[in-house]
Amino acid sequence: MNAVTSTRKLAELSGNAAAAALGPDSVVVLPTGAIEYHGPHLPLMTDYLIADSVANAAVDAAAAKGLDVWILPTIAYTKSDEHHWAPGTMWISWDTLMQTVVELGSSLAATPAKKLVFFNGHGGNLALLQVACRELRRRFGLQTFLMGATVPPGDHDGPEELGLGIHAGHAETSLVQHLRPELVDLSVAEPSVPAHLAEYEHIGFRKRVTFGWLSNDFATNGTLGDPTGANAAYGAELFDRSVTDAVAAFAEIARFDAAGGAGGGMAGGATPAGASS
């Protein structure tokens, strides 16, 4: 970091201050959430709230450890069309989101910073952001990374979720109870676990074979999980673990060198014609 400032929110700096604060080793974090249906018991802003809250806490904690980490405002409207049928879902198309993140990457490339982290809180964004990481690497020479807003999903399934608690279930409901308890209404929460999917050995959300789906495909109320046992204490534990894990990841990103010190290759991250990867 080239300048000392009390904020880690890049948008709170003036342009001149940002140029002075950022350097080639600065890590810039861009959280991505969603505004979408999360059953009758959770707010539409669930994914946005979790991504924004964990990212800001992690950036502050990382900065306190001396890491050169900065955060951009969280993107709220993303690729949520799997919930297109449900009231309140606000979604944009894949090409609109891709163009948005590519243009933001182009803007970041005009600063001294060279490392961009997508800090994602919505599963529907994953495939697109993976493609965007390579696009930004190739076109602008940025080092790009994609990480989840919480510790890996398999680490926090609810006891009755059969590995299918991916949306508005035990973990997300507990997190929102911790962060904004007044937004949770457990009196209308119901388990919505498509147990028949657990019978497939190879096909599933976290198995070798994935599949295209909409959230109303499963004869449920549009959620996937069991929120009925959620509680704020578990949400606090999950939040703390997610922040701690993110800080450790930021430390690795700060020192990451794909070439292992062997040199940078061709400009902009390009490889010679005919090379494979």
Rank of each mutant, 00 (worst) to 15 (best):
G222Q: 06
G121C: 04
E160G: 07
H38E: 09
M266Y: 13
G66H: 13
M45C: 03
A249Y: 01
G15W: 15
G264S: 15
A61L: 02
E82T: 02
G261R: 12
V247H: 04
K79P: 01
T78N: 01
L214K: 07
I203C: 06
A11L: 06
L175R: 05
M147C: 10
N16T: 15
L116K: 08
L72R: 08
S106A: 14
F145Y: 15
R8C: 15
L186K: 06
S93T: 15
A86F: 14
S53M: 05
L136D: 02
H196N: 01
G121A: 05
E201H: 05
A251K: 12
L10R: 00
E182Y: 02
D60Y: 04
D81K: 08
K9Q: 11
G154I: 01
L129K: 02
G222P: 11
D257E: 11
D185E: 13
P194A: 05
P112T: 08
S276W: 10
Y234L: 08
N2D: 05
Y48R: 06
P87C: 10
H202I: 13
G274Y: 03
G269Q: 13
A275L: 12
A262R: 15
G88I: 07
K115C: 09
S93H: 11
L197S: 12
A51C: 12
L129R: 04
W213G: 02
L13N: 05
G235F: 08
A230F: 03
A267P: 14
D47F: 10
A57G: 06
A233W: 00
R180W: 07
H156A: 06
T271D: 12
G274K: 09
A249K: 13
G124M: 03
T220R: 11
Y234C: 00
A19Y: 06
R241D: 03
G274D: 03
S26Y: 03
L104T: 10
V27A: 07
L214F: 14
A76M: 07
K65S: 15
Y48L: 09
G265K: 06
E36T: 09
A168K: 00
T150A: 02
D157H: 15
L30H: 09
T228Y: 05
H178V: 00
T89S: 10
